[in-house]
């Protein structure tokens, strides 16, 4: 074997292989989980049988009645309007929380001194259940939509804050040194290296916060009777329209499920490289 051909073999990863440019898998592949679907349908059917023949109570309607009520309410438009209001409170709250928490997390993560100044107050506020602050928020902000957005934002703030903080603080020093070596200023390093490095953490924080934000949005609606799906559920409960109450619960469940799907899809799209790495490209 001549030296030249050996050198060619030495670099099979170079230009030798005809490359076919491709982007990383960003497509959201929708696969129906057949097994899970079958189990869910079976469970509903079992519940139907149970409520038809064994449990006969005005407070436990049959699933078929609940779905019929849901359908009727959807047609009437009430449920849609209420769901829209809940979604608005949820979205605004999560948006404010995301913006504020990322900004605060970046500041805390890039300066140990600032973090130590805020540490005590953060450690105190974090374990405090957000719902305990709802009465306080009502006193300050009244029973309007503002309270809902504020409480949702407050509760959703913490997971994103901590995830951003750890993401920025634990950014790879080699990645940071690389950028500094190329003469990037501190703000540039922050924007172009620290923030993208923390993106996987931030996305995880937002996913956790989305679930919490929905809890708070519904809770505030239940307590303040200010409209939305939470208030719908309370209203139907007071009117003992049990089927409609359950329809409201199912609607909240569907809303939560859709939100989770959307956040997960967004996460896959934005921090696509995370799955790249996990798929075994690098390690």
């Amino acid at each position: 074997m001549t030296l030249v051909s050996e050198k060619n073999e030495v670099r099979p990863d170079g230009a030798a292989a005809a490359p076919t440019p491709r982007r990383p898998a960003r497509k959201f592949r929708f696969r129906v989980n057949l097994r899970g679907l079958a189990f869910a349908v079976g469970l509903v059917l079992a519940l139907e049988a149970l409520t038809t023949w064994y449990v006969r109570s005005a407070y436990v309607p049959r699933p078929s009645e609940v779905f019929a009520a849901l359908y009727a309410e959807l047609l009437r438009g009430d449920l849609i309007r209420d769901a829209g209001q809940t979604l608005q409170t949820f979205s605004l709250g999560l948006l404010f929380a995301t913006v504020a928490a990322i900004a605060a997390g970046v500041v805390l993560g890039s300066s140990p001194r600032i973090f130590s100044a805020f540490k005590l107050i953060i450690e105190f506020l974090r374990p405090l259940p957000s719902v305990a602050l709802i009465p306080f928020a009502i006193l300050i902000l009244g029973v309007g939509g503002t309270t809902g957005v504020a409480m949702t934002a407050y509760a959703a703030f913490w997971p994103i804050l901590f995830n951003t903080y750890y993401g920025v603080r634990d950014a790879d020093p080699v990645a940071v040194d690389t950028a500094r070596n190329f003469g990037l200023s501190r703000p540039a390093v922050l924007r172009r290296v620290l923030l993208p490095s923390a993106a996987t953490n931030i996305a995880a924080g937002i996913r956790i916060s989305a679930a919490i934000a929905l809890i708070l949005a519904i809770t505030v609606e239940i307590i303040t009777s200010s409209g939305g799906l939470g208030y719908y559920i309370v209203r139907m409960q007071t009117a003992t329209r049990t089927e409609d109450m359950y329809a409201g619960v199912v609607a909240v469940g569907i809303l939560g499920y859709v939100i989770n799907l959307a956040v997960a899809a967004l996460e896959r799209k934005v921090v696509f490289w995370k799955t790249d790495v996990r798929d075994g490209g690098a390690r």
């Binding site: 230009a15 490359p19 440019p21 491709r22 982007r23 990383p24 490289w273 798929d279 490209g281 690098a282």
Partner: peptide, 12 residues
């Protein structure tokens, strides 16, 4: 010698 791989990501 990486011409043709411009649009790849490091993980690939």
């Amino acid at each position: 010698g990486l011409t043709g791989f411009e649009s790849y990501h490091p993980g690939q």
